[in-house]
Design a binder for these strands. Structure first.
Lengths: 246, 246
DNA sequence: CGTGTGATTGACAACCATCAATTCGAGTGG
DNA sequence: CCACTCGAATTGATGGTTGTCAATCACACG
């Protein structure tokens, strides 16, 4: 079959990549994926490790292969906000003109993370060469924009209980989608402080709200980082309008 | 000259369009712009008029020619959040597969607005035909995403005084950029309630904060809707980290 | 001149942040 | 195996910022 033939010519990681079908690489066929594979390098990040900082020159483009990555912004006095979360198959980076642009946010691993990295300039060339790749990138960027806008509504208009429920619901949905785990029991890569930075609350408030959900039997927390979602419907109810699962 | 020649063949609005150079149409040359012009229709919206509602099928794509458009989301109980503001030359709509997708937000005119509308299906065809158009669209979408993320930080982590200062600073910057007016005196298309929906506050709080800025001599308000920015530097200071001007 | 909408200002209350004290859990070394 | 340590999480007490309710003002329009 075609794929294994290409794999012989170019014994690439791409052909057996776990996220191949869902990531932007899914837009490419065997021949094209080889071109992409040529410029790709892998990198592992450990928990809390930074990949780029806010204001850095945008020189790379990367796909998340495994793990969870957070995008954050900070104010001068140290206040911090999570402005994006990347699951396996999500990418980040700026297409075109990235030479003179900078990253608008800090990129940090939450737990162990595997990245597939492409140099920006060479990736741009491939975008021009493979229209499908560019199209897929546009689609993903639009989805991320939709997600960001749902978060705006959460931060601007939802109460603390609603925000925490929204976060948990969104996280459970995204994790399941990204194939992290089936069913309703999850290993959370996020600390209470992370959830606070996501929801615009303090970690004390997050902790209190999670305790309430536990007492109401909506979730069960074996340990702070292991949560079972017992009643997704009641959770969704408490979340009000959910975040569009992207 | 070339342009007038095309104008003769196709006496299009595009060639003398006020936003041509800054909008995504700027990516197209004379011949291409004719193809775009063929599928374009104009539409005027009056203050408060809706163009599409959250959940509508995404059947159109539009460029803002003049005026200001707000994108909003609502919760079931009526709470509302502005998740985007479009100035002249900005567009909205979903590329590719828009047949089966829906608008994630309501689109509403703030003051008199002129739109240039393209049917989604035919616009998609042009996107495929003209790579420059698609590229420009990707760039704009990325910029909007950056802006949305800056707003997330504002909503999640800034205080009421900072939020109002951030809004005013952002609005002054964007208006100047979009060629709405030079200098530091602006006609606001937004009511206090709009600013509240933008900043995640109540209109009373917005009103109080604007009064404070006035008493401090940072702005002068001839009337509620006419604001002169006296001291942009002190305004920026009060805003903390600004919104990335997109 | 009355009416209606938007803006301003005040009084009060609620929600969430802050400060502080334990508790829990994982990892380390005796 | 147990004691110790350190960071994360939980829970409590209190205060401040901002929301809520309400009265008044300003201005446009019929």
């Amino acid at each position: 079959m075609a794929i294994s033939a290409y794999a012989t010519i170019q014994p690439s990681a791409c052909s057996h990549c776990a996220v191949r079908s869902r990531s932007i690489c899914g837009a490419l066929d065997g021949e094209e994926i080889c071109a992409l594979n040529e410029i790709a390098t892998r990198k592992t990040l450990h928990d809390g490790e930074f990949f780029v900082f806010e204001g850095d020159a945008a020189q790379a483009f990367a796909n998340v292969v495994s793990g969870v990555v957070k995008l954050t912004q900070s104010l001068e006095d140290g206040r911090e906000q999570i402005v994006g979360v990347l699951f396996p198959s999500d990418f980040f980076g700026r297409a075109f003109g990235s030479q003179n642009s900078v990253y608008p946010c800090t990129v940090q691993a939450t737990g162990e993370v595997n990245l597939c990295i492409f140099p920006a300039a060479r990736f741009d060339q491939l975008l021009v060469k493979f229209p499908n790749l560019e199209r897929k990138m546009l689609e993903q960027t639009q989805k991320e924009l939709d997600t960001a806008r749902d978060w705006l509504t959460m931060l601007g208009r939802k109460t603390a209980p609603e925000r925490v429920a929204t976060f948990l619901y969104h996280f459970a949905t995204r994790s399941a989608e990204a194939g992290c785990k089936a069913g309703h029991a999850f290993e959370m890569p996020f600390t209470r402080a992370d959830i606070a930075d996501f929801t615009g609350l303090t970690y004390e408030t997050v902790s209190r709200q999670i305790s309430i959900l536990r007492k109401q039997g909506i979730i069960v927390a074996e340990s702070p980082r292991h949560i079972s979602f017992v009643d997704m419907e009641r959770l969704a109810e408490r979340a009000g309008r959910g975040l569009s699962a992207h």
